[in-house]
């Protein structure tokens, strides 16, 4: 048996060497290269206490699988409201992501929102990467099944107090190009969120607990819609949580 295997190998080798096309099917490309990768992470996994005694659990995370050339991401984000025992927001995105330059990836896919209330399905086109001066940037164009378009923009900067204590500043904003009253979205700038979180890398980069403050604000028509339904338009939160990466 062993003899036969080595004989076949010899033939394969001779064939590969005799034929450049076959030589390109170099079996070592498989044995000597790490090709596929995966990861699971939660950038945010936190409890939020607002200045109006509101309590929320917020999660933002996802998982990916892929190669250097193509990755598939599942992105999840949601806010669970204690008082109503319901998802105030709940988003699942499934996107394919490809590199477009040294520091930037393009992505495309779908986003499915299934919070308490009205559901929406969106198509997603996005750009994610690292801007000069180490700003991590993520921005997406969404078009909903109702035909409404919106753009979100997120940026994050990590300031290393030490190599383990990290202060991360985040900015998020959402702009809608048309009104979608059912989901409480006005035309124009909808909302901004500013966050400041101080974390400590407790177990490698796998588990980093943090505390922080978050400021959320809604604007113009969106603020009016929120006010009409009895919601708040501006909140300060104290947050406590952990970043997880595996």
């Amino acid at each position: 048996m062993k003899l036969r295997i080595s004989f076949l190998w010899g033939i394969a080798l001779a064939a590969a060497l005799a034929n450049p096309a076959l030589a390109q099917q170099d079996p070592a490309k498989k044995t000597q290269t790490a090709k596929t990768f995966w990861g699971v992470s939660a950038e945010k996994l936190e409890y939020r206490y607002s200045d109006s005694d509101e309590e929320l659990a917020a999660v933002e995370g996802g998982a990916f699988y892929g190669t250097d050339e193509l990755e598939f991401h599942w992105l999840f984000s949601g806010e669970w409201e204690e008082a109503h025992n319901a998802w105030e927001s709940l988003e699942n995105q499934f996107v394919a992501q490809i590199p477009v330059s040294d520091f930037w990836d393009a992505k495309a896919g779908v986003r499915v929102d299934t919070p308490e209330g009205t559901d929406r399905v969106y198509s997603v086109l996005g750009l994610t990467g690292l801007a000069p001066y180490w700003f991590e940037v993520d921005t997406n164009l969404y078009v909903s099944d109702e035909g409404d378009a919106s753009v979100d923009f997120e940026a994050e900067y990590e300031l290393l107090i030490t190599n383990y204590w990290i202060l991360s500043a985040t900015f998020e904003s959402l702009v809608a190009f048309s009104e979608d009253r059912e989901i409480g979205s006005g035309k124009g700038l909808n909302s901004t969120e500013l966050g400041l979180r101080l974390s400590y890398d407790l177990i490698g980069r796998a588990f980093a607990p943090y505390v922080g403050v978050v400021h959320e604000r809604k604007y113009s028509d969106t603020a009016d819609l929120a006010r009409d339904s009895g919601g708040s338009t501006e909140d300060w939160f104290a947050v406590i949580g952990a970043r997880v990466m595996f």
Partner: peptide
């Protein structure tokens, strides 16, 4: 290998700080 692909500075604890 996987961690380096997720984050190239995963193991770098000598980065410049404040």
């Amino acid at each position: 290998m996987r961690n380096l692909k997720m984050s190239a500075d995963y193991y770098n604890r000598q980065q410049q700080t404040v």
